Simulated scan of single mutants.
Amino acid sequence: MSHITRNVQPVIARLGREGSGELVASRYAVRIGDIDVVLISDGVLPLPTSTMSTNVSEADRNEWFDGRFLQRDTFDWALNIALVRSGERLILIDSGVGDGFEYFSRAGRSVMRLESAGIDLAAITDIVITHMHMDHVGGLNVDGVKAKLRPDVRIHVSAAEIAFWKNPDFSRTVMPEAVPPALRAAAAKFVKLYNENIVQFDQSVEVAHGVSARVTGGHTPGHCVVDVASNGEKLTFVGDAIFEVNFDNPDWQNGFEHDPEACVDVRIALFDDAAETGALLAAAHVAFPSIGHVAKSGEGYRFVPVQWDY
């Protein structure tokens, strides 16, 4: 039986004069108590669907993608970063993939979108890197970006993450062949460029009032999530701990996970906490703007996206 799938090719649409702007929304803001949080789309990464479910059958994988009117072989993987303002501190969470990757030409938009939103990169006081995969540090590696940042910007990275990328282990990952060398190169370039700005932390760190990072491990040994809490409200940016397939199938493993079994435990703990407390979640690779609640649903979970506030 044939199944109609959504075309994954980019839709280019502009209104008015050429270069007047993007028709598709690329940023979305919410307020968590007294703290402002803005999710920003860095674009999309076209990847094989097999990387989303390395421990299940092709038939099971096809059923999930068919049910969402997505193609079975390749799909568009969302890539989101976040900007948080707490008092006088302006905190960037991750930086996108940057440039120099022909196969990721539809991403790398984060710096452009920050600037188009009127954000001066020099106003950023802190940067949190959830982990050092190239789609999270690559935006900082782009030529000219460091010169736009303030010389004393603090870049918070867990000590375990820094240690891991000195000699990374890819033995348990299932990635396209070109990816591991690119990951190694991006991580090495990031550390070399920003060595003097990197502030390492062990298990957790308070970045600003109401904004803290904590190590979960799993996806990478030093992977962290960022909690934003104010006036009884909470949002957690979960980085790469959760992917869209995991709401229905929390035990499905991802090819980019360096410790797949640990990842299952990490995301179930995040799901359970969000379902119990009603806190919001946002993620790097859930469809933009990725903000929503989590509800338990049978053996899995249900994602409840926020109602857009216009």
Rank of each mutant, 00 (worst) to 15 (best):
M1T: 15
I4F: 11
G21F: 05
V24D: 09
S26G: 14
R27V: 12
V30N: 08
V30M: 12
V30S: 08
G33Y: 01
D34T: 14
V38T: 15
P46T: 10
M52F: 15
V56W: 01
E58N: 09
A59P: 00
R61F: 00
N62S: 13
N62M: 10
N62R: 13
G67N: 07
G67P: 00
R72H: 01
F75S: 04
W77V: 09
L79P: 08
I81H: 10
A82I: 07
L83F: 00
R85N: 07
R85D: 08
S86W: 02
G87Y: 03
E88I: 04
R89H: 06
I91V: 15
L92G: 02
I93V: 15
G98N: 05
G98I: 05
R106L: 14
R106N: 12
A107P: 06
R109T: 10
M112L: 11
R113M: 05
E115P: 03
A117T: 06
G118S: 05
I119G: 01
L121D: 03
A122N: 07
I124Q: 01
D126L: 01
I129F: 04
I129Y: 03
H131M: 07
H131P: 03
M132K: 08
D135K: 08
H136W: 03
G138R: 09
L140E: 00
N141K: 09
V142N: 04
G144F: 04
K146E: 09
K148H: 06
K148F: 01
R150T: 02
R150N: 01
P151K: 07
D152N: 03
V153T: 00
I155E: 01
I155M: 00
H156T: 03
H156K: 04
H156C: 00
A159H: 08
E161G: 04
A163Q: 11
K166D: 09
N167C: 06
D169N: 10
R172K: 14
T173F: 01
E177A: 15
E177S: 12
A178V: 15
V179N: 05
P180A: 03
A187V: 02
F190Y: 08
V199H: 03
F201N: 02
D202A: 15
V205E: 05
V207L: 04
V207Q: 03
H209T: 15
G210I: 11
G210D: 05
V211I: 10
V215R: 14
T216R: 07
H219Y: 13
T220L: 02
P221F: 02
H223V: 05
A229K: 12
G232A: 06
E233C: 03
T236C: 08
V238F: 00
D240R: 12
E244C: 05
V245P: 02
V245E: 11
N246V: 09
F256A: 15
F256W: 14
E257F: 11
H258D: 00
D259A: 13
A262Y: 03
A262E: 13
C263P: 07
C263G: 10
R267Y: 03
I268L: 11
D273K: 12
A275R: 10
A275H: 07
E276F: 05
L280T: 06
A283C: 12
A284S: 14
A284H: 12
A287K: 11
P289K: 05
H293F: 07
R302E: 14
F303W: 13
Q307C: 10
Y310E: 15
